[in-house]
Amino acid sequence: MQGVVKVNSALNMRSGPGSNYGVIGTLRNNDKVEIIKEVDGAYEIRFNGKVGYASKSYITIVN
């Protein structure tokens, strides 16, 4: 499943599905991501070869 990031500035990509996990990357508006699955209000995603988590509130599914 594919998604597009929709933010005003940037969205943190984290090592786990919550803000208490470390930041492993930054997503920008209109970045395209692969959605692997939904976990606790976040999506597990793949972006630029990395797998991490981002809030589903800022990712629009575009299948």
Score class of each variant (00 low, 15 high):
M1A: 10
M1G: 07
M1R: 12
M1D: 05
Q2W: 15
G3W: 03
G3H: 02
G3F: 03
V4S: 04
V4R: 08
V4D: 02
V4Q: 07
V4M: 09
V4T: 07
V4C: 11
V5E: 01
V5N: 02
V5S: 02
V5F: 01
V5Y: 01
K6S: 10
K6Q: 10
K6D: 04
K6R: 13
V7L: 04
V7M: 04
N8Y: 10
N8S: 13
N8D: 13
S9C: 15
S9N: 12
S9L: 10
S9W: 11
A10E: 12
A10K: 14
A10P: 13
A10G: 11
A10I: 15
L11H: 05
L11K: 10
N12R: 13
N12Y: 14
N12L: 15
N12A: 15
M13Q: 02
M13H: 02
M13E: 01
R14T: 13
R14N: 06
S15R: 08
S15W: 06
S15H: 04
S15F: 05
S15C: 10
G16N: 06
G16C: 07
P17A: 06
P17T: 05
P17S: 05
P17C: 07
G18S: 10
G18T: 10
G18P: 03
G18W: 03
G18Y: 05
S19G: 11
S19H: 13
N20V: 07
N20I: 09
N20K: 12
N20W: 13
Y21M: 08
Y21W: 10
Y21H: 10
Y21A: 14
G22T: 14
G22A: 15
G22H: 14
V23A: 05
V23Y: 05
V23N: 05
I24W: 02
I24P: 02
G25E: 12
G25L: 09
G25D: 12
T26N: 06
L27H: 00
L27K: 00
R28M: 12
R28V: 10
R28W: 08
N29F: 08
N29K: 07
N29E: 06
N30W: 08
N30E: 08
N30G: 15
N30S: 06
D31G: 02
D31L: 04
D31Q: 07
K32S: 09
K32F: 12
K32M: 14
V33S: 01
V33P: 01
V33I: 06
V33G: 00
V33A: 01
V33H: 01
E34T: 12
I35H: 01
I35M: 02
I35G: 00
I35R: 00
I35T: 01
I36Q: 04
I36K: 02
I36S: 03
I36R: 04
I36V: 09
I36C: 07
K37H: 08
K37Q: 11
K37I: 05
K37D: 10
E38V: 09
E38H: 03
E38A: 08
E38F: 05
E38I: 09
V39A: 06
V39T: 08
V39Q: 06
V39G: 03
V39I: 12
V39P: 01
V39D: 04
D40S: 10
D40I: 06
D40G: 13
G41N: 11
G41C: 11
G41R: 05
A42W: 15
A42R: 09
A42G: 06
Y43T: 00
Y43N: 00
Y43C: 02
E44L: 15
E44F: 14
E44D: 00
E44C: 13
E44I: 12
E44A: 07
E44S: 03
E44N: 07
E44W: 09
I45P: 00
I45R: 00
I45A: 00
I45Q: 00
I45N: 00
I45H: 00
F47K: 03
N48Q: 12
N48R: 11
N48D: 11
N48P: 00
G49I: 02
G49Y: 04
G49V: 02
K50G: 05
K50R: 10
K50E: 09
K50L: 14
V51Y: 07
V51L: 11
G52L: 03
G52E: 01
G52D: 01
G52Y: 04
Y53N: 01
Y53E: 01
Y53W: 14
A54E: 01
A54V: 15
A54G: 03
A54L: 09
A54W: 02
A54Y: 02
A54S: 04
A54I: 13
S55H: 10
S55D: 15
S55G: 10
S55E: 15
K56Q: 06
K56T: 09
K56L: 05
K56R: 07
K56N: 05
K56W: 03
S57V: 13
S57E: 15
S57C: 15
Y58H: 12
Y58G: 12
Y58C: 14
Y58I: 05
I59T: 00
I59L: 03
I59M: 02
I59C: 02
I59H: 01
T60G: 06
T60L: 13
T60W: 14
I61H: 05
I61Y: 05
I61A: 05
I61T: 06
I61E: 04
I61N: 03
I61R: 06
V62L: 13
V62Y: 09
V62H: 07
V62P: 07
V62Q: 09
V62N: 07
N63Q: 12
N63F: 11
N63K: 12
N63V: 13
N63E: 13
